[in-house]
Simulated scan of single mutants.
Amino acid sequence: MSLPTHLHYTEEHEWLEERDGTVRVGVTHYASEALGDIVYVQLPEVGEQITAGESCGELESTKSVSDLFAPATGEVVAVNESVVDDPSLVNADPFGDGWLLELRVSENGKLLTAEQYAELTSG
């Protein structure tokens, strides 16, 4: 799968998409493939403040449980209830319907371009 070039990425395999003063966050196809079939998603609450680099949720698969790390510092303004109800959306469409949350960012964490992320995951 090719990486969308308009997104920013993190070393923890999240993506960010800028959207009218907020960012939408999800996990990459690489992460969803590595996790296997995702069966449970735990996300922060709307209104919660999260801090870049710190755990803010969990993705549980048939293989393991993985922390979701905040890619930026800010306030959670929306969560995707569809993935809470149907976690398989993260596997089926990680860059689309499988998005996880939206943030009003006060400070970005360390972000990568699509090219930098591709280099990170090709090794």
Rank of each mutant, 00 (worst) to 15 (best):
residue 2 S to N: 12
residue 2 S to L: 08
residue 3 L to I: 05
residue 4 P to G: 07
residue 4 P to C: 06
residue 4 P to N: 08
residue 5 T to K: 14
residue 6 H to I: 01
residue 7 L to Y: 09
residue 8 H to T: 06
residue 9 Y to S: 02
residue 11 E to L: 01
residue 11 E to Y: 00
residue 12 E to P: 00
residue 12 E to D: 12
residue 14 E to F: 00
residue 16 L to E: 06
residue 17 E to V: 01
residue 18 E to G: 01
residue 19 R to Y: 02
residue 20 D to L: 13
residue 20 D to M: 11
residue 21 G to W: 14
residue 22 T to M: 13
residue 23 V to H: 14
residue 23 V to Q: 11
residue 23 V to R: 12
residue 26 G to D: 11
residue 27 V to C: 13
residue 28 T to H: 09
residue 28 T to W: 10
residue 28 T to I: 11
residue 32 S to Q: 15
residue 32 S to L: 01
residue 32 S to F: 01
residue 33 E to Q: 14
residue 35 L to V: 02
residue 37 D to E: 12
residue 37 D to A: 02
residue 38 I to L: 09
residue 38 I to K: 03
residue 38 I to F: 02
residue 41 V to K: 04
residue 42 Q to Y: 02
residue 44 P to M: 01
residue 45 E to C: 00
residue 46 V to N: 02
residue 47 G to E: 03
residue 48 E to H: 04
residue 49 Q to C: 00
residue 49 Q to K: 07
residue 51 T to W: 01
residue 52 A to I: 08
residue 52 A to L: 03
residue 53 G to M: 06
residue 53 G to I: 09
residue 54 E to L: 12
residue 55 S to R: 14
residue 56 C to K: 03
residue 58 E to N: 10
residue 59 L to T: 04
residue 62 T to N: 04
residue 62 T to Y: 02
residue 63 K to W: 03
residue 66 S to F: 01
residue 69 F to C: 03
residue 70 A to R: 01
residue 70 A to C: 08
residue 72 A to R: 06
residue 73 T to C: 02
residue 73 T to V: 05
residue 75 E to K: 08
residue 77 V to I: 10
residue 77 V to C: 03
residue 80 N to V: 00
residue 80 N to L: 04
residue 81 E to K: 11
residue 81 E to M: 03
residue 83 V to E: 06
residue 90 V to N: 08
residue 90 V to D: 08
residue 90 V to G: 07
residue 91 N to K: 05
residue 93 D to F: 07
residue 94 P to L: 10
residue 95 F to Y: 15
residue 96 G to Y: 04
residue 96 G to W: 05
residue 98 G to N: 07
residue 99 W to R: 08
residue 100 L to T: 08
residue 100 L to Q: 06
residue 101 L to I: 15
residue 101 L to R: 04
residue 102 E to F: 01
residue 102 E to R: 12
residue 104 R to A: 15
residue 106 S to L: 11
residue 107 E to R: 15
residue 107 E to Q: 15
residue 107 E to H: 12
residue 107 E to N: 13
residue 108 N to A: 13
residue 108 N to G: 11
residue 110 K to S: 14
residue 111 L to S: 13
residue 114 A to I: 12
residue 115 E to D: 15
residue 116 Q to C: 07
residue 118 A to K: 14
residue 119 E to K: 15
residue 119 E to C: 02
residue 119 E to F: 10
residue 121 T to W: 12
residue 122 S to F: 03
residue 123 G to F: 11
